[in-house]
Each structure stands twice: as C-alpha cells, then as structure tokens.
C-alpha cells in the first residue's frame, strides 16, 4: 500500500497548546484535523513535514453557536455535522446542502469545515503519487518548475 513518510507527532488539547506546537518548527509542520486531504497528500509525498500536529482533540474548536450577530462555527465542525445541524439547515440551507454534497458519507464524517476552507490545491496534476508526478515531470506546485492546467484552452489559472 502507499506508505506515509516518517514524522513526529503532537496532539494538543487547547488552542494555546496548538499555537505552541505550531511555532516549534515553523515551515516543517503540518496541521491535521480530519485528515481527509492531508493524509492522502502525505501518502503522495506532497508534504513531508517533520512534525504533524493533530488538532482533532481541541475542544474549543468544536462548536456551532447561534448568536445575535450570526452563526459561529468552529473549525472542527465536521461536514456531516454542518449538513445535519438544525440551525444551519433552517437559517443557511444552502450551506447545509453544500456540506452534504461533499464527497461520501465517511469523508463528511471525518472532514472538517476548517480543513475544507483551508484545503490545499485540488488538481489532477497535483493530487497524485510521487511516482506519477515524476513521470509527469512534476508540477510547479510541488517539485517542478512549470504549471499544469487541466483545461489549457479555457482556464487561465492553475
């Protein structure tokens, strides 16, 4: 199977601990919450961090709060929670529907709102194994010098 590279591991419980962990090795750290994007990317060797900071246990980031000034969503709210939350469904039905249409049920159970918003590039030239990318000649985004576009005639952006 595709392996994960070696890395060290931190599992902070609070935002404060998280910030400390992140500042420990700047540039060599990867934040993982649900892992639905980060873990495949690690398997693809798109990231090779020294340290993985798993923030799934940070309770402070797990909330849906309906307040006067609007709806507050924690970064660790899963897409499944977002899709089925009664307040979200009532007041922001398109958000609930959008969250419910992402990928499949297991990925929605795992994937978080924060992760979804901070998602790394999704591209058929990028989200591939190290071997495949080497056969491609690599992309600018990782290990390469040139950019690849999926639809060269219609899209100007990578």
């Amino acid at each position: 199977m595709l392996t994960l590279p070696s890395f060290e591991w931190a599992r902070p419980r609070t935002v404060e601990e998280t910030l400390a962990a992140l500042s420990d090795r700047p540039g060599e750290t990867l934040v993982v919450a649900g892992g639905t994007d980060a873990v495949p990317n690690l398997k693809h060797r798109l990231h090779e961090p020294r340290l993985v900071v798993h923030i799934g246990g940070v309770r402070e980031l797990q909330f849906v709060r309906d307040a006067e000034d609007g709806l507050h969503l924690g970064a660790l709210v899963t897409l499944a929670e977002l899709a089925r939350h009664p307040v979200v469904r009532r007041d922001f039905p398109s958000l609930a529907r959008a969250a419910g249409l992402v990928a499949g049920p297991q990925l929605r159970n795992m994937g978080t709102l924060g992760g979804n918003l901070c998602l790394d590039t999704r591209c058929t030239y990028y989200n591939q194994t190290y071997f495949w990318r080497s056969a491609l000649g690599y992309c600018l985004k990782k290990d390469g010098a040139a950019a690849w576009r999926r639809t060269p005639r219609t899209s100007r952006r990578c």
């Binding site: 199977m1 892992g35 639905t36 495949p40 049920p105 297991q106 159970n109």
Partner: peptide
C-alpha cells in the same frame, strides 16, 4: 487513499475511513 470505502470502520457511531486516519 480514501476512495473506495473497503477500510470503513465505525468510530463513536460514525463510519470513517481507516486508511486515511492516523
């Protein structure tokens, strides 16, 4: 890498993909 679901296990009542879970 989380595309097929053959690795599905249930964690606290919810199905998740164990092949992309640390």
């Amino acid at each position: 890498k989380g595309d097929c679901g053959a690795c599905t296990v249930v964690v606290d009542g919810e199905p998740v993909l164990s092949c992309i879970s640390l």
